[in-house]
């Protein structure tokens, strides 16, 4: 099993395609950082427009912490494509290349093969998120400094103390990793049905785009569906940045407004991962390899 995992990782990281994602993430982040560094003032002014007409914000809100949040908000919508690029290719790519039949005829069970492949795509996904964290969080912290984090939500604003932010990012990245592994599991599941990688990649993205639109639409008939869409739960990393207040309306440092929501969402995502991977194994075990 360990050999299989090593080999799968070796294959992933020997392919040029793998690095597209890392380059794309780096390019996007560095461009945003460059833009904000040069012209962050006007962007900050836009953000610092008075809130509610009665309050104004004093200080440098555009620090590394907020920039990371903005980037996560933007990027985590697109990272699924980069995850699908590899995960949805795990089986279909081998079928397409013709190497699947050779793999299957080796002395490993199909279950082991799939688990190793899924594990390898998970490692890839996690590394992509670590890369994202290094660039979006640590690089931003280095370039823009740290400080309190000011966040505007739709019906209130949140101010997090400087020393109350980093652990939230740790949680958010762990959660985002879980969300992206769910995407990987979906792509992986779809990849067992195809003999080319484009199909499953497009299918994975279509599912995510479709579900995300349903998640975003505020139409009552769809609202009932939302809790059942995994895309709704994928953005629960944001919950780490909402803080509880006490009766005196003081934010309680170190608290999370809806910890239960995070736990629920995480459970939903874990169940999806188990479902997708389990389904992949179940179907693939019985599949005749004709590629």
């Amino acid at each position: 099993m360990w050999t299989l995992i090593q080999i799968e990782l070796y294959k992933i990281f020997r392919r040029p395609r793998t690095y597209i994602a890392f380059i794309a993430v780096a390019a996007l982040i560095i461009i945003i950082q460059f833009g904000l560094k040069l012209d962050g003032k006007s962007y900050a002014d836009f953000l610092m427009k008075d809130i509610g007409g009665t309050m104004e914000i004093d200080g440098n809100i555009l620090n590394g912490y907020l920039i990371c949040y903005i980037m996560l908000q933007l990027l985590l919508v697109h990272v699924p494509l980069l995850v699908a690029l590899i995960a949805a290719d795990m089986i279909s790519g081998e079928a397409n290349m013709g190497t699947l039949r050779l793999l299957i005829s080796k002395p490993f069970s199909r279950t082991e093969l799939l688990l190793a492949k899924f594990f390898a795509s998970t490692v890839y996904t996690l590394l992509l998120l670590v890369w994202l964290a290094i660039l979006a969080l640590f690089l931003s912290m280095w370039i823009f400094g740290t400080g309190d984090m000011f966040l505007m939500k739709s019906s209130y604003v949140v101010l997090l103390s400087e020393n109350d932010v980093f652990w939230r990012y740790t949680g958010a990245f762990v959660f985002a990793a879980l969300a992206m592994v769910t995407v990987a599991a979906l792509g992986f599941f779809l990849s067992i049905f195809a003999e080319n990688s484009i199909g499953p990649i497009v299918a994975t993205m279509s599912v995510i785009v479709f579900f995300t639109i349903l998640s975003t639409l505020n139409i009552p008939i769809f609202n009932a569906l939302k809790p059942y869409l995994f895309t709704t739960h994928m953005i629960s990393w944001k919950e780490f940045f909402d803080i509880q207040v006490n009766d005196a309306n003081e934010a309680i440092v170190g608290s999370i407004q809806h910890p239960q929501k995070i736990v629920n969402s995480a459970l939903v995502l874990v169940l999806h991962i188990i479902g997708f991977v389990g389904g992949s194994i179940w179907i693939f075990k019985k599949k005749d390899v004709l590629s």
């Binding site: 009665t54 908000q73 739709s154 209130y156 604003v157």
Partner: peptide, 22 residues
């Protein structure tokens, strides 16, 4: 002490998908 007005941003801007009322 001072009076405040309403604060509201569209969910589209804040990218909040969930519609859980407080």
């Amino acid at each position: 002490s001072f009076n405040t007005k309403d604060y509201k941003l569209p969910k589209g801007i804040t990218l909040e998908f969930d519609d859980n009322e407080k």
